[in-house]
């Protein structure tokens, strides 16, 4: 954890001094590809310069502490959703034979380890949903950040050509989740893989 914070901090400091790493605008209304998932966002978003993995892209509306829209695309057999940063907290790997219950656990544990392994995430309401014209599924997430802030989330997932695609929205339970979920749903409905 210390190392992680230190690394993030130094990275942030250096990049901000260099002035090269910035959030960029994702304008509303035009189709954009995020890691192989093409969506047409109904409102403007900010794309984060953070790098959580080669196949991960993060957008935020009000700041990453308040809401995050995470795109994970084209995860193949044996690959992890996020890159591992701590040997003691390995990221679980995707397996092409996985069914919805397994993907639910995969997303849950990946997100937990991303937060240093010290939060408990509950998932619920797993159900089928159409994702980019094919059979996919969605589920909800509930957890407390280490700070004690309550978060909620919605995950949309599909396995296509043995590769996993996920759109994961998490936000503060108060205000931010409910405020942005309808927009996120519209964005999800526009998704094409």
């Amino acid at each position: 954890m210390i190392k992680q914070i230190k690394r993030l901090f130094i990275l942030g400091l250096l990049s901000s001094l260099a002035g090269c790493v910035q959030y960029s605008l994702v304008p509303a209304g035009s189709a954009v590809s995020a890691k192989g998932i093409t969506v047409t966002p109904p409102m403007d978003w900010n794309k984060s310069p953070a790098n959580l993995g080669k196949k991960v892209e993060i957008w935020t509306r009000d700041g990453v502490s308040l809401d995050q829209l995470i795109f994970i695309g084209g995860i193949s057999d044996g690959e992890t959703l996020f890159k591992s940063w701590n040997k003691a907290l390995p990221m679980p790997a995707f397996n092409a034979g996985m069914l919805p219950n397994d993907v639910e656990d995969l997303v849950k544990t990946s997100l937990k380890n991303l937060a240093g392994g010290e939060i408990q995430i509950d998932t619920s309401n797993l159900k089928p949903t159409e994702f980019g014209g094919t059979f996919g599924f969605e589920f909800e997430l509930d957890y407390f950040e280490k700070s004690g802030l309550k978060k909620r989330g919605n995950a949309f997932a599909v396995i296509k050509d043995e590769q996993l695609y996920v759109i994961l929205f998490t936000a503060a339970d108060l205000h931010y989740f409910g405020e942005h979920l309808p927009e996120v749903r519209k964005l999800f409905e526009s998704a094409v893989i």
Binding site: G12, G19, Y23, S24, L25, D44, G63
Partner: peptide, 12 residues
Amino acid sequence: RLHHYGPLKLPT
């Protein structure tokens, strides 16, 4: 502090 005063501005 991070996104308004800090270096990581949010374009929106």
